[in-house]
């Protein structure tokens, strides 16, 4: 195997390692926060939500290799479109059922 090849390999390995470290940190923070009661409750909710979102992005970027470069444009567009559909369905469900809940309560 030539040097180019070896470099690419190392680059990818570094990507996976960075991904792992970030993911561990982003999981440990909310778990520790809740289990040890480090922060007030309102702050914890925000920490959990933001850490989860960040970790999803980390997974996509470092494990699934989805980024903004043109070779992944198709995959990215598919994912964004699916997210739009998910947002519509989730938002709509919460809205409708929230209303129903409020009216029955």
């Amino acid at each position: 195997m030539n040097a180019d090849h070896e470099m690419e390999r190392r680059q990818e390995l570094r990507g996976y390692s960075i991904g792992l470290v970030l993911a561990v940190l982003l999981s440990a923070l909310p778990f520790a926060g809740v289990m040890l009661g480090l922060f007030p409750r309102a702050a914890l909710i925000w920490i959990i939500a933001i850490a989860a979102l960040c970790q999803v992005v980390v997974h996509f970027r470092f494990f699934l290799h989805i980024d903004l470069s043109s070779s992944h444009r198709d995959d990215l567009q598919l994912i964004l479109f699916s997210l739009l559909i998910v947002a519509l369905m989730v938002g709509g469900t919460l809205w409708v059922l929230g209303n129903a809940h409020a009216m029955m309560g």
Partner: peptide, 11 residues
């Protein structure tokens, strides 16, 4: 699983 541990377990 990130969604599950964040939403179901932690929250």
């Amino acid at each position: 699983w990130i969604g599950i541990f964040s939403i179901v377990y932690l929250l």
